[in-house]
Design a protein around this nucleic acid. Structure first.
Lengths: 166, 166
DNA sequence: CTTCCTGCAAATATTTTGCATGTGT
DNA sequence: ACACATGCAAAATATTTGCAGGAAG
């Protein structure tokens, strides 16, 4: 038997509304996946999510993980991004606030930032080119505070830097 | 018999110097690839380059294309980036000037921009976070001047927008 | 009872790698 | 000669898709 609407967290309700609006079905897999996504602390990838679910005894197939993540992106509950490595990264959207990222090449820490002045400057640039912006991605790669203090392995760092395809 | 150094364009000379410095060899394939890369108008991907070479009767294997592009990136003659689709994009570096990109979701036009104020603002942000920037990527997706005038296919556009993994 | 969903395995797409053979230095 | 390079085909990686059986509305 299904729980009442009001028993479910907001994100599950939002997903349900979205699914209904498209005549799609609210399945156990979809609910479990949303729950796990919002249980994750920030950034994760498809494989991590798949593993995490498996560990909790919810063995949802990879195909369904990808299919559901895609729905969540369309519904606006999840953001998908690429950090220059070979696979996509995802993050639960907890507010509508857009942000950009600082990415540590040593420890993979991801620091979020938002600067209205920067957003405004982008708009100015677009205006000059007669370009209509619809989405943007701004990523800064380097070393976080902690990793600057540590002695980092220079060749490894140089390699990661050169392999960034962003 | 090899041509004299002075007969070759600057980028080939730079590549030769780089190869020598690492005890790597100056092969016909490598020279042809550099030539083609600098013959390309701006952005291209590995497959386009491979095709272009094949059409000119220089059938260089895919493996060698990838291996050589990697060397060119290391040597600084080529920049590698990802525009949110599934494959890497490359561009010949014709000057040391860094730039960012406006990317049209309708016609795939890539417009380069550089704004010192924006670069400075990034540095300020990094300072605040105690972050040491080493590389950055800033991409704005939307519609170029020409495509705004055209009637674009809204569903297609929405789909591309939602599928951007950046 | 219809439509949509799932898991599986196969297909795709892009890039990398092992190996035998070939080629600059 | 030696070390490095090439092409090929297979592997690796990440993601998508067709299909047959299963579940939601």
């Amino acid at each position: 038997m299904r729980k009442q609407k009001t028993d479910r967290p907001e994100e599950q309700q939002r997903f349900e509304t979205f699914l209904r609006s498209r005549q799609l079905k609210l399945t156990g897999e979809r609910l479990e996946l949303v729950e796990e996504v919002f249980g994750q602390a920030h950034h994760f990838d498809a494989d991590q999510l798949h593993m995490a679910l498996k560990q909790k005894g919810k063995a949802i197939s990879r195909a369904t993980v990808y299919r559901t993540l895609d729905l969540l992106v369309q519904c606006g509950l999840v953001r998908k991004s690429s950090f220059g490595d070979q696979h996509a990264h995802y993050e639960a959207v907890r507010s509508d606030e857009h942000h950009d990222h600082l990415i540590c090449l040593n420890c993979d820490a991801i620091i979020e930032f938002f600067r209205p002045k920067l957003e405004a400057l982008q708009d100015t640039i677009c205006q000059e080119y007669g370009f209509k912006p619809m989405h943007h991605s701004h990523q800064i790669f380097g070393l976080c505070k902690d990793c600057q203090a540590l002695e980092t392995d220079a060749p490894t760092l140089a390699h990661r830097l050169s392999q960034l395809n962003v």
